[in-house]
Design a protein around this nucleic acid. Structure first.
Length: 887
RNA sequence: GCGGACGUGGUGGAACCGGUAGACACACGGGACUUAAAAUCCCGAGGCUUAACCGCCGUGAGGGUUCGAGUCCCUCCGUCCGCACCA
């Protein structure tokens, strides 16, 4: 009988409609048993999904479908990270409203996601740009404000004078705005901040509890938080050298043990003492100005030469009143870290050393590295910042670094300078408060009113949400909210006098810092439904890209704590994501030609024909026949044109095929390379499963035979074992997100099954009784295979399930249980080594004693030959694994 | 510069806790079916040597621990990623 090819695109629509009809992916009520919250990082609605989305959401979907089959009440929601710059850019370019553009994109992408057959609870869909969402965010902001976790202060920002907007650091390229190309300025603006630093220690400490997070992410966060233990040291300024009113300068140091190696102090250009000194010194003022301008370009910073300017002020050494040191303003000292002032020990710090050499300042070695000779040790061009033995340090000489630290700390804590201790121990963090103000339209309005008389007034809860005006104009750069004719004018809620609205909107990372909590009940009238949250949180498996390792994930960890402390959680829970998985990217080979100037012109994969293999591969442009170059295999990106459109793949091969390929071959945390061969192989497998199911149905669907074989053929037992082993292994591998291994095991089972099907067809003619004896195992293995592929290729699995005669949805079937009796063999194969080298293998009953195994091994001809007449000295037997004869 | 990860056939990768390296897939070669092709099915395959068996070599390089190392330790090389004047 001729079998029709499985028509994936047509049947997939059918099954999607069936699932929808049954509403089967709606998350159950909290009463319904053990829960499992599966979440993938929600997408920005750019307009079309890309292969990265397909991979990310397929992984989550497999996990969610599997957990559902295992009996969990699964929450698997989807939403849209819908605020942000691209919508405003689109508005500028296409003269559409950001909202119109965004919602059209959402509709298009939603249709794409549906065409992939994801088991999502669409009833919980969230778009962060919807007033239904952002009004709650405004409420949360006000609650944080009340708690003192949100505040306003003046801060330096990257300002693009052409676009008239603040730029994030990553939007400043070589000191210029990424869009306008204008030289970016540092501007002092009053900005809103969240007090993430209040949680520095907790965020750091709690990392150790996140044992289901990748070590890499935890390490990156720990480095980002950047805890250091040191001292604040107060230095007296020498009389007559300092500007009036300045008597002390405070520095932060992690190495008070090196105080006797100090040769100068250095201030940031923005340090108050530097500013004061610059008032009467125009050269110094000019130098400070130069330092300020430098701040923006990352590339400049890397290569910038260490520069300084002597203020003429001198500081008194805290351990020797007779010793004074010069104070410089230096371009490498940051106002944002520590106190904006340092003492420099050139022998122990490379920057200080470079600086000292340039300005001819003393370099005194104070730490002798282990093994070095004190008589000859000197500092050349490299500072020594390791531990060792103190030298040239008076009362510290001979102590080790740590003891010296303690000794100095003790003395400085006891010493007094104008009534206060000279030194105090201080833990410092690199993490800074989170600036959330953005001078943009398409974001969540900050619900604040500025009143000339009452100051900063929160918008009363009853007036929320503060809605974005629909009639803003996007024809000019700058903040549309700021120049809107009426929106910002509002009466003060306290005194009723004319006042103005805050025109800044929130950073979009605020939106994504709590969406996972909102998903637990997105229809709640309060920002968070405490009961729903208590049941569903934490997220049991969170999946997303490594690029969010710090920002999004750290902000979320902070924000969840902050809103919990503001009374929104009601559950003793600090971490929102119990398990995190970071998936790799989808890559593709690139192709290009060079233009007259040698710049690459990228070519779409479809435009190129590849011939040959290995190093001899060549590429040609199909239309013109011109030769082209084969470039690197890199992340799919529009600019390199190495993209493959999921829609086209779905139309051609079907969603299941795309899903299967995205799970195959590469470990999920690593990059996967898209190849035409790979997707074709997935397509072949899909058809093969369909054919096998079809044949098995024909072979086994008929009436029961009246006679069976007395002893079934060997294929029967082998097939049963293979099926149950796969069942056990595939379940575990899905559980641990090792999808590529699960896929390989399913291929394996399909191979065994295919062999058995062929045998059965043969027996049907030559040995009918054997044919009948294979019927039950064939059917069992086939059904198990179909059930196991269901999380990965859910449409095909439904189709097969129906073909096998069932009229129920496979998506509603429980995950089958493996028969433990079939997971162990009666007979095992044991490798036989002689002197650690494999020489043979031995089939023996599983329960054989070590002595039996040893005896059997020593009888093997291969062993006797390898021993070459020597007597075995020792025999090591690892039961059921290996026997090693040492001789 | 600092921190981290990784290095296995022609390719992607597998190998539980130190116990048969190369599962599975791609690419390749051979065969069956076909007038032919596609599709499908079967078979082969790490390298060297061999007619074949045998044998030798083999997880980036070198050394070590062990009866036994892809796996553990040390040194080096290479690739990738993160952070980067953090005092």
């Amino acid at each position: 009988m001729a079998i029709e090819r499985y028509n994936a695109p047509a049947r997939e629509k059918h099954w999607q409609a069936e699932w929808e009809k049954g509403d089967i992916f709606r998350a159950g009520d909290p009463a319904q048993g053990p829960k499992c919250y599966v979440l993938e990082m929600f997408p920005y609605p750019s307009g079309r999904i890309h292969m990265g989305h397909v991979r990310n959401y397929t992984m989550g979907d497999v996990f969610a479908r599997y957990k559902r089959a295992k009996g969990f009440n699964v929450l698997h929601p989807m939403g849209w990270d819908a605020f942000g710059m691209p919508a405003e850019n689109a508005a500028m370019e296409r003269k559409t409203h950001p909202g119109t553009w965004t919602y059209a994109n959402i509709e298009a992408m939603k249709a794409q996601l549906k065409s992939l057959g994801f088991a999502l609870d669409w009833d919980r869909e969230i778009a962060t740009c919807s007033p239904d969402y952002y009004r709650h965010q405004q409420q949360l902001f006000l609650d944080l404000l009340k708690k003192g976790l949100a505040y306003r202060r003046s801060a330096k920002v990257n300002w693009d004078p052409v676009d008239m907007t603040v730029l994030a650091n990553e939007q400043v390229i070589d000191g210029r705005g990424w869009r306008s190309g204008a030289l970016v300025e540092q501007r002092e603006l009053t900005q809103w901040f969240f007090k993430i630093t209040q949680y520095s220690q907790e965020l750091l400490d709690a990392l150790s509890t996140l044992d289901k997070w990748p070590e890499k992410v935890r390490l990156m966060q720990a480095n980002w938080i950047g805890r250091s233990e040191g001292m604040l040291v107060r230095w007296a300024l020498e009389n007559g050298t300092a500007p009036a009113g300045h008597e002390v300068v405070q520095v932060y140091t992690t190495r008070p043990d090196t105080l006797f190696g100090a040769s100068f102090l250095a201030l940031a250009a923005d340090h108050p003492l530097a500013k004061a000194a610059a008032e009467n010194n125009s050269e110094l003022a000019a130098f400070c100005e130069e330092c300020r301008r430098m701040g923006t370009s990352v590339a400049d910073l890397e290569t910038a030469e260490k520069k300084g300017f002597d203020t003429g002020i001198r500081a008194v050494h805290p351990l020797d009143a007779a010793w004074t040191l010069p104070i410089y303003v230096a371009n490498f000292v940051l106002m944002d870290y520590g106190t904006g002032a340092i003492f420099a020990c050139p022998s122990g710090d490379q920057r200080d050393l470079d600086f000292a050499r340039k300005y001819d300042l003393p370099v005194v070695p104070v730490i002798l590295p282990p093994g070095a000779d004190a008589a000859t040790f000197e500092i050349g061009t490299e500072a020594y910042d390791g531990d060792g033995t103190m030298m040239n340090s008076r009362f510290l000489d001979g102590l080790d670094t740590k003891t010296a630290f303690e000794e100095v700390a003790k003395r400085l804590e006891a010493a007094k300078l104008s009534g206060k201790a000279v030194g105090e121990r201080k833990v410092n963090f690199r993490l800074r408060d989170w600036g959330i103000s953005r001078q943009r339209y398409w974001g969540c309005p900050i619900p604040i009113i500025h009143c000339e008389f009452c100051g900063v007034v929160p918008v009363p809860a009853k007036d929320l949400p503060v809605r974005l005006p629909d009639d803003a104009s996007f024809d000019k750069p700058g903040n549309p909210l700021e120049r809107h004719p009426t929106w910002k004018h509002v009466d003060c809620p306290t005194c009723g006098k004319p006042a103005r609205r805050e025109t800044d909107t929130m950073d979009t990372f605020v939106d994504s810092s709590w969406y996972y909590a909102r998903f637990t009940n997105p229809h709640s009238e309060t920002p968070i439904d405490k009961q729903a949250l208590a049941y569903w949180l934490p997220v049991d498996q969170y999946i997303g890209g490594i690029e969010h390792a710090i920002l999004h994930l750290l902000y979320s960890r902070f924000f969840f704590r902050a809103i919990s402390d503001a009374g929104h959680s009601g559950k003793n829970l600090r971490e929102p994501f119990a398990a995190l998985f970071t998936q790799g990217m989808v890559t593709h080979e690139t192709y290009f030609q060079r233009d007259a100037e040698g710049k690459p012109i990228w070519l779409e994969p479809d435009m190129v024909r590849i011939d040959g293999e290995g190093a001899a591969r060549t590429a040609h442009v199909i239309d013109t026949g011109e030769p082209a170059q084969i470039g690197d295999i890199i992340k799919m990106s529009k600019s390199k044109k190495n993209i493959v459109d999921p829609d086209q793949i779905i139309q051609h091969y079907g969603a299941d095929c795309a899903r299967w390929f995205m799970l195959s071959d590469s470990p999920p945390e690593r990059d996967v390379q898209w190849t035409d061969e790979g997707i074709a192989a997935a397509g072949r497998f899909l058809q093969r499963v369909w054919r096998v199911v079809d044949v098995v149905q024909d072979l086994t669907g008929g009436p029961k035979p009246d006679r069976m074989a007395e002893s079934p053929p060997p294929e029967a037992a082998e097939l049963r074992k293979a099926a149950h082993r796969a069942l056990s292994a595939v379940g575990q591998n899905i559980e641990t997100l090792r999808f590529n291994v699960a896929v390989a095991q399913l291929y394996d089972l399909a191979n065994v099954l295919g062999g058995a099907v062929n045998k059965s067809s043969e027996y049907a003619i030559s040995a009918p009784l054997d044919h009948y004896a294979l019927r039950e195992p064939l059917r069992e293995a086939t059904e198990l295979l179909v059930q196991m592929i269901a999380p990965m290729m859910p449409h095909l699995a439904e189709e097969c399930w129906a073909r096998l005669g069932y009229n129920t949805l496979l998506a509603n079937q429980p995950w089958p249980a493996a028969d433990p009796a079939l997971l162990v063999d009666d007979e095992v194969t044991v490798a036989v080594q002689v002197n650690g080298k494999r020489r043979d293998e031995l089939k023996i009953v599983r329960t054989a004693s070590n002595a039996d195994v040893e005896a059997a091994a020593l009888k093997l001809e291969s062993v006797i030959r390898a021993l070459d007449g020597r007597k075995p000295k020792k025999v090591i037997v690892v039961p059921q694994r290996i026997v090693n004869v040492v001789g």
